[in-house]
Every structure is written in C-alpha cells, then in structure tokens.
Design a protein around this nucleic acid. Structure first.
Lengths: 300, 300
DNA sequence: ATTGATAATTCCAAATTATGGATTAATCCT
DNA sequence: AGGATTAATCCATAATTTGGAATTATCAAT
C-alpha cells in the first residue's frame, strides 16, 4: 500500500467504525487490507493512530486529529473530481472558444450564437474570426469552423454544409469584356484572387472541366473574402465567390454569374474540435448546436 | 493509474512544465506514464486539461483552475504527512498518557515528571494512578509502570528497578507476639493482606524457603498498599511491604523487619508501552526518561 | 517537397504491487 | 477453562503499473 490517499480513505472509515472488521465490511475489502493500510499509515506518520488489541481498538488523540484533517482533505479531493454531475447537466457553464471564418461567422453564426447565449446564461464565448488553420491558435480553441479540407486527423470534423462557388462579374465589367462563353474567354479577362493565409499563396482558380489558365496576373488580390467581393462589385475583375457572399447581389442584379456550368465543385463547411481526451459537456452542446445551425441554414 | 493523488501530483508538475517530456524528466518517470496519468485524469474529470499535439502542449482554462486547486490539496496532504520532522525534533509536543502505581508513582515518579515538564513546556501529561493491568484502560495509555510481571507480549517492557520486600511489624505488635524466628512462628500471628485488583484475590504471601501457611485469615485486607502500611504501622498485623514503603519507618524505628532471610524474592518494576506500530517521539523520550529515573533511584 | 528530429501516444510483456485465504496469536465472554 | 471473535502475518495469486518498441504527428531544415 503506497497510496497515501487510499490509506487516508481507509483510515477515515476505520476511525468511524468500532473495529477493523467492521471497517473492512464497510469498505468491502478484507480485514488484512485494513490492518496493512493502518500500519503503513502509522509508519508513515511516525505516530500510532489506534490503541489496539485483538479485541479492542480505540483511536488515539493523534488519531482523532488526523481523522478530522483526513476527512477535510478527502472531501476536497472528492469535490475536485465531481463538479460535472449536477451543476453542468442542469445548467451549462464556462467558456467556449470558437474560431470561425470572418464573413461566414459574422453573417450566419453570430446571430445563432447570440440566441444560444440567451438560452444558456452560464456560457461565455470567446470568438476568433480567422480562416487560418494555425495550430498554435487553433489548438487553443474548443471548436473551429472552416471552409475547405483538412488533413488533420487529430480533430473530429463534421461536414455541416457546403459552399458553392459562382464565377461573377459586375454588369459594368461584363459590358466592357463581353460575356465569357468559354473558360478560355475568361482567361483573357481581368480577375481577382484570394490569398490562402495557410500557404501565403493565392487559392488557384478551379473549374468543373478545366484548370487555371489565366494569361495575366490577377488584377486584385487580398486575404479577405469581403474585400474581394467589394473589388468584384466595383468591376475590377471577375471573381470566384462563395454563394453566401454573392447570391444576394446576383438577385439584386449587382453581380452576374457567368459560365455557371464551369463553377468549381463546392467546398465543405466543417465544424471540428480537438479529438484528444474527453469533451466538456458545454463544448459538445455548442458543437452540436453549430452543426445543427449550419446544416439547417440556406447560405444565401 | 487509479490513484487520484498520484494523478494530481503528475498533473501539477506537467502544468508547471513546458511539455510532457520535461515533466517526465522532472518526475523521474517515463513519458508514457505522464501521458496515461493526464489522460485518465481528463477522463475522470470529463474535461480536457491540455490542448496538445505531438509538438505542443498548452494548458486549458479548466486546466489552470485545476492546477491551482490541485496544488492546494497536494500541499495539504503533504503537510499531513510531515509534522514530525522539524517541529518535534526541536521541541517535543503533545499529550503523553501514563499509568503508574499510586504510591510508587506519587513518591518517586511525580517529582521527576514535574522536572521533565519544566524542560519540555510543550508536553502535557495525563497520569492515571493504578496498579490495574486493565487493558481497556491500559491500552489507551502511552506508557505504563507496573510492579510485578506481565505475560503481555504486546508490550515492550523494561525492568527498570526492583522492589524488595520486608516482613515488618510495629514494635507494639512485636512486643505482643514476640519476634518470629521461623516462618511457622509467623503463621500463628496476625497479618495483613493486599488485594490484587487484577484477580480480585489477595496476593499470596511468599517466602524465600517456604510457602503460604497462615492458620487464620488476614487481620486486615485492602486494595491499597498505603492503607496496608497504615494498618501495619498501627500494629494490626505483620505485613509484607515493599522497601520504598517501609524502609523509612524501619530507620525511624516505627517498624521492625523480621525474618529478613525469609523475605520473598524481589519483584521487578517495569516500564512498558504498547508495541504495535511506531512510537511517537515524545512517548519514546518520556519512556526513556522514566526508565532512567527509575533505574537511578534508590527506592528508600 | 523531402528528410530528420522530436514529442505524444499505443501496445505489450515484464516487474511491481495489492489482495485475500490460511494460519497464528491474543483476548474477551460465558 | 473453553469457545468465539479479532488482529496480524505469511504467502501464492491476481491485479496494476511500468517502460521499451513501434507508431503517428508535427516542426524545422535542407
């Protein structure tokens, strides 16, 4: 027996019992174990805890004091290991750190999260808007939302929705360049690009039946999708934009989709969280909530 | 790993370390053990303690709180197991329960114990004067002093001195009965007896070369040696008295020793203490002190 | 991009530790 | 004095813990 806590637990029960035998019954162990535990505890403490003969055990003064202290410590430890039973099943509490893309997050997730907060006053959110799959940051997050793929199998990820792309241009631009009817037409026209912060390079344009073949560098490059949208709206070039960014402008007539059959295959929108270890209840609930919200959302 | 305390200890070190490896070096265990301990702790708690990848470990908010609480509990437990190092080696403290015979104790031991108290202000004594070898009482004592033998091998006993017996009578009694020159003479004379509280019966008289052969019941019986002394002094009968009780009266001429060559063999004076388990430092010191005092005392 | 180095993890066999039956010893009660 | 009950000890067995070997993931450097 070289487990201080277990010795204290046994001692506490013995101190509350008439004799070792009774304690062993209460503890559900053999009397031998009790004898040993008390003996080792006494040796460790350097003081006897009980005056005892085979027929009689009475606790020493020192033992009484020890029993009191032991009870306190044991209760504290047990308290450390308990907090998630009554408290959190009835009311979720604590901080949940979420990282999500700026535009998608602010447009669709933020309102939903605010609703969630009203339902669960014990929850606090720490929201970081980013597309970066940076581990130093992401690993300190409880939940992430990302568009695209990741190879990271340390996360559990759910494909909650998808983002369709449109190739769009402003009416003024189209008036200038004419409507591109083939991909090759487009390759001669001005276009915009979006920097992938993870690689520092531009996301390559992709098409259903062709690959990137532009003859000139992009007319406009940024690392922010909304800035790219603004540029496209201003007629600076054609852009490949996610549906939730541009659909409303297409309906307004401020943007026009071209080469619709050549739009790239959609990207998944993933909700993920670190997989190691257990998941705090509040994290699981928010995770499920985000998946539900995203799945049920029509992104335009 | 099903040792909560050990898990907390490991966790505490990990929380103070840059990574699991460093913690494993500090703890002197393999990294595997650290991994396991943290994993089980997380499962037990239902919350992750670290955000981690193979190259990076950072503690969670929950982990930080846990680390703080853990440290408190660990310190408390360590404190429970420490108190006898600095405190008691420099100054002895606490209660020592001693049981001793009334007359012997009050006459010789009490002054010595009072001297001891002056040297060790932290010590308290609980003194019970009794000759009874009653376990219900004696087993709650730290130290006992007894005259005679005991068969009890659950105690560690030191023969610290011995008590010689004299067969004595008062001058008036001797004037009445004449000096007994043989044991058989004595058997015809009045005598006193002392009850052995352990058996409820009278201690039998014994002689160097003869056995008890009184022709009449004792003229006086008591369970208190000093009361017997008083009776003998009053001339009620001959008594077999311990030297420390009667020597001074013999010197005074108030008692006279008869049949000196027939005095029974001396009885040991024992200092003993329960043997089970460790002995508190203060008890050991007082025990040794009592042995020293008794050994060095000339009991008359 | 590929390679090398290192950290965390998992698996598994070996070492360590804990457990309770059988036995012994002590002591209380009738 | 004998019967009954408890504590302690011994020891073979069972359970747990441990770290080496292999695996996976990540970062850094070429």
């Amino acid at each position: 027996m070289q487990n201080q806590l277990e010795m204290l637990r046994i001692f506490k029960v013995v101190a509350e019992s008439a004799n070792f035998k009774e304690a062993s019954v209460r503890l559900g162990v053999s009397p031998q174990s009790v004898t040993r535990a008390i003996k080792e505890l006494e040796e460790l403490l350097g003081e006897p805890l009980f005056y005892r003969s085979t027929r009689n055990t009475t606790i020493t003064e020192f033992g009484k004091q020890m029993a009191q202290k032991s009870e306190g410590v044991i209760d504290q430890i047990d308290a450390l290991f308990k907090p998630n039973k009554s408290a959190s099943s009835q009311r979720l509490e604590g901080l949940v750190k979420i990282t999500m893309p700026n535009s998608l997050g602010q447009q669709y997730l933020l309102p939903a999260l605010n609703d969630f907060l009203k339902e669960h006053p014990g929850i606090q959110f720490d929201l970081r808007f980013s597309n970066l799959i940076d581990n130093v940051v992401a690993d300190q997050m409880d939940i992430g939302v990302r568009v695209g793929f990741f190879s990271n199998n340390r996360n559990v990820a759910r494909r909650a929705n998808e983002m369709r792309f449109h190739i769009v241009g402003s009416p003024e631009l189209i008036a200038k360049t004419g409507v591109p009817n083939k991909v090759d037409d487009l390759f001669q026209m001005p276009y915009t690009g979006l920097i992938d912060l993870n690689t520092g390079r531009m996301w390559p344009w992709s098409f259903a039946n062709a690959s990137d073949g532009f003859s000139t560098p992009p007319a406009f490059v940024t690392d922010d999708p909304e800035a790219e949208l603004t540029a496209v709206l201003a007629g600076i070039g054609y852009g490949q934009l996610g549906d939730f960014l541009c659909e409303k402008y297409i309906r307004d007539g401020k943007l026009m989709a071209v080469l619709p059959e050549q739009a790239p295959s959609p990207w998944g929108i993933y909700v993920y969280r670190p997989q190691r270890g257990p998941v705090a209840e509040r994290v699981r609930v928010v995770f499920d909530y985000l998946v539900k919200v995203l799945s049920g959302t029509i992104l335009y």
